[in-house]
Computed example of a mutant assay.
Amino acid sequence: MASQAAVLLALSLLSLWTSPALGGANDAEDCCLSVTQRPIPGNIVRAFRYLLIKDGCRVPAVVFTTLRGHQLCAPPDQPWVDRIIRRLQKNSAKNKRHSS
């Protein structure tokens, strides 16, 4: 239990603050100022969204939302990011089939 708390604390510290996009296509959208290169454990992620240059952001990123509501910015071109996204999409499709 203590190690899980330590991991969550470390991830909280890794959480990168976001700021409003400056002059972007969608001024209400937040953008990541930087991304973490350290892999995020997929089992703590519940959702994701893309923030791209075409959206008015200077740093392209995938923003993962953790089970505790923290938002972590990750680089969209990393294999570990793709794995987490695929798992989330697979789980989402599975949940939709079961609710129909």
Rank of each mutant, 00 (worst) to 15 (best):
I53F: 03
D82I: 04
V35I: 05
D55E: 08
L22C: 03
H98Q: 12
V45N: 05
L22R: 11
S12H: 13
H70W: 11
P75Q: 09
Q71Y: 00
A93V: 05
P41H: 10
A47P: 00
I40N: 02
V63T: 07
A28C: 00
K54H: 04
K54Q: 07
R38F: 09
D82F: 13
W17Y: 08
Q37I: 06
H70V: 01
L14N: 12
L16M: 11
R46M: 09
H70S: 11
S15A: 15
V81Y: 06
S34L: 10
Q4A: 13
V59H: 01
P60A: 02
S34E: 10
A93G: 05
T18F: 05
P41A: 09
F64H: 02
T36I: 04
R68T: 15
V81K: 03
A5G: 08
G23T: 02
T66M: 02
S3C: 08
I53H: 05
R68C: 01
V35C: 09
L22D: 03
G56K: 04
T65S: 07
V62L: 05
Q71G: 00
C73Q: 01
I84R: 07
I40A: 00
A47G: 06
S15N: 14
A10Q: 14
C57I: 09
A6I: 12
L8K: 13
V45P: 04
K54G: 02
P60D: 02
C73P: 04
F64Y: 06
A25V: 12
G42S: 13
A47F: 06
D82P: 00
G69T: 03
G42P: 07
D27G: 00
G56M: 05
W80P: 10
L33W: 06
W17P: 08
C31Q: 02
S15V: 10
T36S: 15
R58H: 04
L22M: 08
D82M: 04
S19P: 00
W80V: 07
G56T: 02
Q78S: 07
P79C: 07
A2E: 15
D55V: 01
H70A: 09
N95W: 05
D55N: 12
Q89F: 03
N91I: 01
N95H: 07
P60Q: 01
G56V: 04
Q71N: 10
N95M: 08
F48Y: 15
A28G: 00
A6E: 15
L22E: 08
A2K: 14
A74F: 01
D55K: 03
C32W: 00
